[in-house]
Simulated assay, not measured.
Amino acid sequence: MTVQIEFLLASLNEELGLAREHRSTGASDLSLQAVASLLQRADTLTASGQWANANELFHAAARQVSDSWSFSSRLGMEVLELVQAVERRASN
């Protein structure tokens, strides 16, 4: 999972480097930074076996994406797909 999160973090940083009007997500700096922070913290918690706490952070990232990012954003879809994969893994 860490590799996938690292890929997403790199993509979030690339998006953050663009002017807002050129971002596929349409997200503000604050929103992109919040999602990056949530994913990093969730990854750390997952690595230490704290799945319940990590799950809350993954859901918070998904809410941020679904509430304020463009629905056609590939990056947003990738974040949401990660959260869904985490949910499937947690339910097994």
Score class of each variant (00 low, 15 high):
91 S>M: 10
6 E>R: 08
82 L>G: 06
7 F>V: 15
78 E>C: 10
49 G>W: 07
28 S>R: 15
92 N>P: 09
70 S>G: 08
66 S>F: 02
33 Q>P: 11
25 T>Y: 06
45 L>N: 09
48 S>D: 05
5 I>L: 04
8 L>R: 00
86 V>K: 05
42 A>K: 04
12 L>W: 01
85 A>L: 10
15 E>N: 09
43 D>W: 03
73 S>D: 09
60 A>T: 05
51 W>F: 12
37 S>L: 13
91 S>T: 14
80 L>C: 07
62 A>Y: 00
88 R>G: 05
23 R>P: 06
44 T>D: 14
87 E>M: 10
32 L>T: 05
62 A>L: 03
2 T>C: 03
76 G>C: 08
85 A>G: 10
69 W>L: 07
12 L>F: 00
4 Q>R: 08
77 M>Q: 14
47 A>C: 15
5 I>H: 03
9 L>Y: 01
13 N>A: 07
58 F>D: 02
80 L>R: 05
25 T>M: 11
58 F>N: 01
77 M>H: 09
77 M>D: 14
52 A>E: 08
66 S>I: 00
78 E>W: 13
23 R>W: 08
12 L>M: 07
63 R>T: 11
76 G>H: 04
89 R>P: 08
22 H>F: 15
46 T>E: 04
24 S>R: 02
53 N>S: 15
70 S>T: 15
81 E>R: 03
75 L>Y: 13
20 R>M: 14
34 A>G: 01
92 N>F: 00
83 V>E: 00
87 E>K: 06
74 R>C: 15
9 L>R: 10
34 A>D: 11
70 S>C: 08
91 S>Y: 00
64 Q>T: 10
9 L>D: 07
